[in-house]
């Protein structure tokens, strides 16, 4: 008899099993094995996680499990352990067979496929805001700002692959208020663009 799978609801980007489905069936709860989030496989650099410690959850949280992993994200090993609990229910994990582990481990080069990116700390103001601020400062009698730039803030994440410029460092990319350089110029064919 062939079982016919009938899908219900929306499609998903996830592919794989929940973490408990993997870890619960392994010897010693899979400590020492390597797992992969299939969402992170979109990056050309290898991303994987080595299980270090597993804690099971009470019956009320039957889809979850608390796992500590040594995380390698985009070819770079993160310092310390990372806890996976909130995302452990996502059916997006994949177990790496033992004979493929060494291949994955040797593919780590600590380098990205692109040259290092240094993010700027400031951004130019939008044109209307510039005019508004100049007027506003005149009205209030404050001294005029010399360079009309705003500070930029970035989210803190250990997964960041691009570096934020230290003071005095020259950023390699620049954010502007204009359209910028298109990533795919073919879309702009025949469009007049200053």
């Amino acid at each position: 008899m062939t079982t016919v799978i009938k899908y219900v609801g929306r499609t998903t980007d996830f592919k794989g099993k929940t973490l408990w489905e993997i870890v619960g069936n392994l010897k010693n709860l899979g400590v020492g094995r390597i797992i992969v989030r299939s969402v992170f496989e979109r990056y050309p650099e290898p991303s994987f996680m080595k299980i270090v410690k597993v804690e099971t959850c009470p019956d009320e949280e039957r889809r979850r499990v608390r796992v500590w992993v040594e995380k390698t994200f985009r070819g770079r090993k993160l310092p310390g352990l990372t806890e996976i609990y909130r995302t452990s229910y996502k059916p997006d994990y994949k177990l790496i067979p033992k004979h493929e582990e060494s291949k994955l481990l040797t593919s780590v080069t600590n380098e990205h496929y692109f040259p290092e990116v240094i993010l700027p700390n400031t951004i130019e103001m939008p044109p209307l805001m510039k005019k508004f601020i100049i007027k506003d400062h005149e009205k209030k009698g404050l001294e005029l700002m010399k360079n009309l730039v705003m500070p930029l803030s970035y989210n803190n994440s250990p997964n960041r692959v691009q570096r934020i410029a230290k003071p005095g460092e020259q950023p390699t990319v620049e954010f502007t208020m204009s359209l910028g350089k298109p990533a795919s110029p073919s879309l702009y064919e025949g469009v007049l663009h200053k």
Binding site: M125, M129, M150, P151, L152, S153, F175, M177, G180
Partner: peptide, 13 residues
């Protein structure tokens, strides 16, 4: 991404 960066900067300012 550009838009989000710009808006974040304006909001912070």
């Amino acid at each position: 991404n550009n838009y989000k960066t710009q808006m974040r900067a304006i909001r912070r300012f």
